[in-house]
Design a protein around this nucleic acid. Structure first.
Lengths: 190, 190
DNA sequence: GTCTATAAATCGATAGAC
DNA sequence: GTCTATCGATTTATAGAC
């Protein structure tokens, strides 16, 4: 009943999973716009035609990469919306976002920072709807400049930090603990 | 005496300024890796060859775009380093970074988030040195995980926020005031 | 699922006229 | 400073064999 996943379900064959893994690594290094299907094929060790057999356009690959994280984000925002108060909802969502970003650092960096990916997601309705729900929860019921800037700061800080050179050699547990502390500071009334 | 600018000075002809402006807009929309010289030429209304007459490679255009902001960032970090204490130095630098990011939102977004630009700057020694100085000031004399994550959070939050869809229609003064408040929260000991 | 081969367009970059 | 014209390499994408 209800709450069906509107984001492409992360169900992949072995060949598709290899393509997605290679794409994430290349997107991180060269950006989505600077990554060709030839580069992906070379990274896996197959030809372009083999890649096209799995995903018939480059957009489908971008979609598949985004779907991995965004399906989980949709679940997280759904759970947050069911919390008893707006304050609890925001805290719960931020906790899930930190979990997700630390666990999949490179993907989080791509989804929140790559210009091509951002543009792609903005034009894709299911993704846009999820982001609107995320923003609504993060704004905590308000929509004034203060709430907007605050809501914008959370994902920016989270996604930017997990891929920052200064935290590259930190293990997940340490990064998670310290990042959580920083995000909590942003939650304070002043 | 000393403190000569090591970053390309922002001295441009009118033709060069047009190219840089068009490049910034296109880099924001399609990413550095997804922007071709043809696109830049079309945006200005000239041919590719005319663009090549100003900048003989695409890398020089990227460098010119980066130089505009980074020359000012170098000045800012130099001034911060002359403050009386590490705490004051950090506050001063963050103030300048917020100024710069709000004033040139799109450029800040590109410099801190575009994968190709980040990679390009990392391989460019003068820029890398400036970023090392910035990181040193932001870490405030420490180098433990707590200081690293904190230092990584500042630029991530600033650059990500100024280009976030939620703050697009906020005027500079409002954004500056609210962003300053958020950044101050991150500075708190807990 | 993977291959070879190819098409049509675009890429960064250069030469030379005006 | 801008143009036309062009180079060779690379791009997305398809056809068809195995």
């Amino acid at each position: 009943m209800g709450a069906a996943t509107t984001i492409s379900p992360p169900v992949h064959t072995a060949a598709q999973a290899r393509i997605i893994d290679a794409a994430v690594a290349l997107f991180t290094e060269h950006g989505v716009g600077g990554t060709s299907l030839q580069m992906i094929a070379d990274a896996i060790g197959v030809t372009k035609a083999a890649v096209y057999h799995q995903y018939s356009t480059k957009d489908e690959i971008i979609l598949a990469v985004a779907g991995v994280v965004l399906a989980r984000l949709e679940t997280a925002v759904g759970a947050a919306e069911r919390e008893r108060s707006r304050a609890r909802a925001r805290e719960a969502l931020l906790g899930h976002m930190v979990d997700l970003a630390v666990e999949r650092r490179r993907m989080a960096g791509i989804l929140q920072r790559d210009p091509v990916m951002l543009r792609f997601l903005q034009e894709h309705e299911p993704f846009r709807r999820v982001m609107e729900r995320v923003n609504r929860v993060l704004m905590g019921g308000a929509s004034d400049p203060r709430a907007r800037v605050q809501a914008a700061t959370f994902p920016s800080a989270i996604a930017g930090t997990v891929v920052h050179p200064l935290v590259l050699d930190l293990d997940d547990a340490t990064l998670h603990a310290q990042l959580t502390k920083q995000v909590r500071k942003l939650l304070q009334p002043r």
